[in-house]
Write a protein that binds this DNA or RNA. Structure first.
Length: 300
DNA sequence: TAAACGTGGAC
DNA sequence: TGTCCAAGTTT
């Protein structure tokens, strides 16, 4: 049992809420999954695609995806290979598989409707704490703490006076976020998306535009003179030469081909034999690729 | 808990 | 040019 973490006080919560809500009303981007006519499915698809992927790259794929598969049932009726191909170059293609699996589960267990409860949502493949809370909040107007990288950074700065949040979500951080959440569900939902938008457009990691910030005069970090992050250094992720790069390249060859691809073609795409073989096997294992002949591969 | 998991734009 | 990193989840 741990002591209750200290929660920094915010003296004028209604004022803070008002500033963020007004700013969002004025400056929010007009994104398709935010429209009044956006379906819960549209929101759900956007949340899958936006996991670790910038909005600008999601936009066209999301539009095509919704045209092709307007409902969970439509996606569930397609092959996983079609989903992987439509996913294109968004990255982390296992998300396409998980979205397909989630759609299948929605048809099987929820009558084809995107579930409303956090518990039902987080039980679906590819949905963790953030995505479950985001769908419950944005698609269904429920009151949930939504902790994404933007919300975490904004709260760390405004309320905790830190440049960056901890490496992983802490109890103190969650308690602080909960203490800031507006009471009315509709306001809570707008607060969540407003904080995300603020983090994306103004309160960025590297060069925050404090002069455009609606809560500058309420920001603990700004008041403290924007002290640099003093926590443990973040590990830089390497990419060149990794299995991830190898897998990406191999999958791209098959994804961009018309039909099955000969093993020799894949061999030509990656020089290091043992790494290539390992990655090919893992792609098949993951269900991203299928071996369709003695020496040929295709999307599943 | 840490590491794996894609991709491409920005600086 | 190389590093950073963008609405995370899974194991």
């Amino acid at each position: 049992m741990r002591a209750t973490p200290e929660i920094p006080a915010v003296d004028d919560l209604p004022g803070l809420h008002g500033a963020v809500l007004s700013w969002f009303d004025e400056h929010a981007r007009d994104l398709p999954w935010r429209g009044v006519d956006a379906s819960p499915w549209s929101v759900m698809v956007s949340e899958f695609m936006l996991q670790q992927t910038p909005v600008a790259r999601v936009l066209p794929v999301h539009a095509t995806w919704l045209e092709t598969w307007p409902t969970p049932a439509a996606l569930a009726a397609a092959s996983t290979g079609d989903a992987v191909r439509a996913w294109g170059r968004l990255g982390y293609p296992r998300r396409a598989l998980r979205l397909h699996a989630a759609a299948t589960a929605i048809v099987a267990e929820h009558g084809g409707e995107v579930p409303r409860s956090y518990e039902d949502l987080i039980a679906l493949p590819g949905i963790g704490d953030y995505t479950a809370a985001a769908i419950a909040s944005f698609a269904h107007g429920q009151r949930h703490v939504v902790l994404d990288t933007n919300v975490r950074r904004v709260i760390a700065r405004v309320a905790a006076g830190q440049e960056l949040p901890p490496r992983s979500v802490t109890a103190a951080e969650r308690a602080l976020a909960a203490s800031l959440l507006p009471d009315a569900p509709a306001d809570a939902a707008t607060w969540n998306v407003g904080l995300m938008e603020l983090g994306a457009l103004v309160c960025s990691v590297a060069s925050p535009a404090c002069e455009r910030c609606p809560v500058l005069d309420r920001c603990a970090w700004a008041a403290a003179g924007r002290p640099a992050y003093d926590g443990p250094a973040r590990v830089a992720q390497t990419y060149a030469g990794t299995d991830r790069q190898c897998r990406g390249r191999l999958l791209a060859v098959v994804r961009d081909a018309e039909g099955p691809v000969a093993l020799s073609t894949l061999e030509a795409a990656w020089a290091i034999a043992d790494q290539r073989d390992r990655c090919l096997a893992s792609l098949v294992e993951d269900g991203l690729l299928a071996r369709v002949g003695p020496a040929s591969y295709a999307l599943p």
